[in-house]
Computed example of a mutant assay.
Amino acid sequence: MSLPEVLLWQILRKQPGHIKFRRQHPIGRYILDFYVLELKLGIEIDGEAHGMDDRPERDEARDRWLASQGIRVLRIAATDVLADPAAVADSIVRLCTAS
């Protein structure tokens, strides 16, 4: 796990809002950074590499395949997590409880 993922996991593993988050969860040939099974919500923390070379196209293809499986994907910039992991976790929990 990358540093932003570790920082976010330290909060999400405590099941805020009684939401069970899974980390490094496999779906098909992909591994999601975090996953909420009950909501079919994948959470991806995107670092700098996600904007380089063919990575945007690969991410788009991955998101399309996950959508075909009924899974929504929330992408969050790693810089946002590094700046304020608690705020990012809070926004994820609010999204989950609003669903």
Rank of each mutant, 00 (worst) to 15 (best):
54 D>C: 13
13 R>V: 06
43 I>H: 01
58 R>K: 14
5 E>K: 02
66 L>A: 05
55 R>H: 09
35 Y>S: 12
87 A>N: 10
16 P>L: 15
44 E>H: 00
31 I>T: 12
86 A>N: 12
71 I>T: 04
49 A>F: 01
54 D>M: 15
60 E>W: 08
30 Y>E: 10
44 E>W: 03
2 S>M: 09
50 H>K: 05
47 G>R: 02
97 T>F: 12
52 M>R: 07
83 A>V: 02
48 E>K: 11
5 E>R: 02
69 Q>L: 13
45 I>N: 00
82 L>D: 01
6 V>Q: 12
17 G>T: 12
5 E>M: 03
7 L>Q: 10
62 R>S: 06
91 S>W: 05
33 D>Y: 00
27 I>F: 09
89 A>P: 01
67 A>C: 11
57 E>C: 07
56 P>R: 10
92 I>P: 01
87 A>G: 15
5 E>W: 01
84 D>T: 06
52 M>E: 05
95 L>K: 02
72 R>I: 07
5 E>D: 03
41 L>R: 15
5 E>Y: 00
13 R>H: 10
64 R>D: 11
4 P>V: 01
68 S>W: 12
73 V>W: 03
90 D>C: 09
89 A>T: 02
75 R>M: 10
59 D>V: 03
43 I>P: 02
86 A>C: 10
12 L>V: 03
12 L>H: 05
93 V>P: 09
77 A>L: 04
19 I>A: 12
60 E>H: 12
92 I>D: 02
27 I>G: 14
45 I>H: 03
59 D>P: 03
29 R>F: 15
52 M>Q: 08
37 L>A: 10
27 I>D: 07
40 K>H: 14
40 K>P: 13
62 R>E: 03
45 I>A: 01
79 T>S: 08
79 T>L: 04
83 A>E: 02
76 I>Y: 00
34 F>L: 10
90 D>Q: 12
60 E>S: 11
